[in-house]
Every structure is written in structure tokens, then in C-alpha cells.
Simulated scan of single mutants.
Amino acid sequence: ELFSKYGHDAILVPIMKTGIPDNPASLDELCRKVASSKVDFLIFSSTIGVRYFFEQCGNVPDTTTIIAVGPRTQEAVIDKGLNCETIPSFSSDHFASHLGSRIMGRTVGIVRPDIPNPGLVDSLTASGASVLEGVAYRLVPTGNDLREILPDVDAVIFTSGKSFNLAGVSAGDVPDKTVIAIGPKTAGMMRDHGIVPDIKGNGTLEGCLKALAGQSR
């Protein structure tokens, strides 16, 4: 639907799927802290994180401010009957500027996959927050081969550094394609492997599609 809005047909090739984390201890601890009102801010970066958190943890008290990344994550939180603040895209700078001095001396919980984000943690602790991370799900390869569909597409979007790595795509696979990185971290990963993205998005699919539309004018 989102791709159709911008006049594109999409072929979706899932490179990763989600699963229950090998060690649930960090999420269990975050759940206990949230339930006892010891977490002041709770960050969800994806709809998947929302789903796994509430399957395990139940509700969030009114004393906790929920931060959702992007409109789809916002919708997932609202569907749980909760209010939230929304950051348009995932970026350590966006979190720091949005939360500002409010997190000084406060506890911030992060619901995340089994991929750490030290840049985000550092930006929050630098603002005076204590950070508690809960690994809600893990990301594992699907075995799908993205290269099989590349002859049939004009552009390809990589939605994370890990999915790019697992795809195993090289510069020789995409010589005549518009290559898009969803955000700065993914773009950096791609450059490290010899692919310079034509478009670097703002951390959201819609941002990438807007940039692609602007490029094609």
C-alpha cells in the first residue's frame, strides 16, 4: 500500500525473521521495572517490539511515557489502548533532541532486538539517563536470496545493516540499480562493503520513497 501510494510495485524479500530471544532475562527485568513504575520513559523502535513486549509484559502504567519510532509503531502502541510520543525516524540524535533535559536522572527503557545500539545508549546516558534494555526478539536469516529478483527491479531498498549483510549483495550485483539505504547506519554498512547508496533515507520506508520520487523528477 505504501509503495502504491508513490506509484511503485514492490517485491518484498524478507531476509530476516523474528524469534524468541535465547535469553529472556533482560526483557523479564525490564517488564518488572515497568510494572513497578520504575521506568520513566519506554522506547519502542518497531511494531515487532511492541508485539513481543506486550505478549510478555502486559500493560504499561500511566506514569511511564512511551516513545514510538515512526507512525506504524505509534499505531501499534495506540492499538494497545495507550498514548505515546512519536519520533519520526530512528536516530540517536533524534532521541536526544526530542527527550532533552527531561531524562536527566530518569530511567529509560529500550525494547529492542538482539542487535545492540551503543550509539543510542551513549546519547541517552550522556543526557543523564539510566538505560535499561530489554531484548524482546532475535533476528535470524530466512534463507531467501535477494539476488534472484534483482534482474526484475529498478531499485532496491535495504532496511537495516544486518539485512544488508545477510543478503550478501556486492557492487557487481547492482550496477544498474538505484540502491537505497533506509538510514545513515545502513548506508555506512553498505559503504564498508563497497556499495555507495544512491539515496540515504531518514530511517523510514516512506522517507526513502519520498527521496526516490524527488530523484526521478
Rank of each mutant, 00 (worst) to 15 (best):
I43Q: 06
E133Y: 11
R51K: 15
A25C: 03
D62Y: 00
I66A: 06
V50R: 01
T107H: 00
E55C: 06
K177C: 05
D122H: 13
S91D: 15
V60I: 10
E133Q: 10
G109Q: 05
G172F: 03
G81F: 03
I48Q: 06
Q74R: 15
L212W: 05
C208G: 01
N144F: 10
L212S: 03
V131M: 09
T65V: 13
S46P: 03
S37A: 14
L82H: 04
I87T: 07
G188Q: 06
L150P: 04
P116F: 07
G7K: 01
S26A: 06
L212P: 04
S26I: 03
T159N: 11
P116Y: 06
A136S: 11
I48G: 07
G70F: 05
A155E: 00
D28Q: 09
S101G: 08
H193N: 15
S89L: 07
D152M: 10
G49T: 02
F3W: 03
F44W: 10
A68Y: 06
D192H: 01
G188H: 08
L146D: 10
K210L: 06
S36W: 05
L2Y: 03
T204D: 09
D198R: 06
H94Y: 11
C31M: 02
R217I: 15
T178I: 09
E148Y: 07
K17P: 01
D152E: 14
V34C: 05
A96S: 15
K5C: 02
I78K: 12
T125Q: 12
D145P: 04
T186M: 02
T204I: 09
I157V: 07
P175G: 06
K177A: 06
T86H: 08
S4I: 06
L2C: 10
V108S: 09
E29V: 07
A10I: 01
V179W: 03
A96Q: 14
L132I: 15
G49C: 04
H193I: 02
P21V: 14
S26L: 12
L99Y: 13
L30E: 14
P88M: 11
V156F: 01
V34W: 09
